[in-house]
């Protein structure tokens, strides 16, 4: 196959970016989009040009490192599929494929397609955990968890932290990411002691990072490579409201979603 890659080039965070179009030949339908970018980069390197910078690691859809807007959609046109899993057979011979970084105020561009998603780490640091030190845990079977609850918690825990939800949202909201973590813990007996504090702190951190609010577009759910449901956001609001009543003095400004 032969395709055209129209890709965002930006030398650094404070440089002006622009699209540039390249022809790439010798592509097989079973190759991934990232492997096509590899081929393009080999081509550019040999021509003495700067290769296109992009993040990727596991290349099997689980690490969350890759994240590209492909033809205007976060991770491209396939449902429940990361950029690294996206195969070229979904594009026709001679197709023009537009590739951009995930864009959001809270995800500043570092170079070309690479963005800074460390805001997510700071949100998790604000409460996305149970406070249990190594060595102090009771026997695992002493805490029974109904199968359906464990499965629901797993649905929320499946988040890979790629940021597609933010990139797809017209408001660049991180509500699906935050909602998924809050929901996971709200379903489990572990960490109940800090449930309210968690919801308040994580939401406050989300606001502080400059993510927008949720206005129920549901683009996040459509873009999520792990199919995480927007109901996680509703649950986050419920948790936040409940926590706000418990800790009224702490709940000021911003809001859940």
């Amino acid at each position: 196959m032969k395709v055209k890659i129209k890709v965002w080039r930006q030398a650094g965070p404070n440089e002006k970016g622009a699209f540039k179009t390249y022809d790439v030949d010798g592509i097989l339908p079973e190759m991934s989009l990232l492997e096509t970018l590899d081929v393009l980069n080999e081509q550019l390197t040999k021509a003495g040009e700067e290769p296109v910078a992009f993040d990727s690691d596991c290349r099997e859809g689980i690490c969350g490192a890759c994240g590209l807007m492909v033809n205007g959609m976060a991770h491209g046109p396939r449902r429940k599929c990361t950029s690294c899993e996206l195969r070229m057979r979904h594009f026709g011979e001679g197709a023009m494929i537009t590739v951009e970084p995930f864009r959001a105020r809270a995800f500043p561009v570092i170079k070309d397609l690479v963005v800074d998603r460390s805001a997510f780490d700071r949100i998790i640091a604000a409460g996305g955990y149970t406070s249990v030190n190594a060595g102090s845990a009771p026997d695992a079977n002493s805490i029974l968890i109904p199968k359906d609850k464990a499965e629901k918690a797993m649905d929320s825990a499946a988040c890979i932290g790629c940021g597609a939800c933010v990139a797809a949202c017209p408001n660049a909201s991180a509500s699906l990411f935050v909602g998924a973590k809050i929901t996971q813990f709200s379903l489990l007996p572990q960490g109940q002691a800090e449930r309210d504090r968690r919801a308040l702190r994580m939401v406050a951190q989300m606001d502080e990072e400059g993510f927008g609010n949720c206005s129920n577009h549901a683009e996040c759910e459509a873009a999520c490579p792990k199919g995480i449901s927007i109901s996680n956001i509703a649950n986050m609001r419920r948790e936040y409201m409940h926590a706000g009543r418990v800790y009224e003095e702490h709940a000021g400004g911003g809001g859940a979603g």
Binding site: D139, A140, I145, E151
Partner: peptide, 13 residues
């Protein structure tokens, strides 16, 4: 396993 369960790892049940 005890440690991970206490952290809220959603093991199969």
């Amino acid at each position: 396993i005890d440690q991970c369960a206490a952290q809220g790892v959603p093991f199969a049940r």
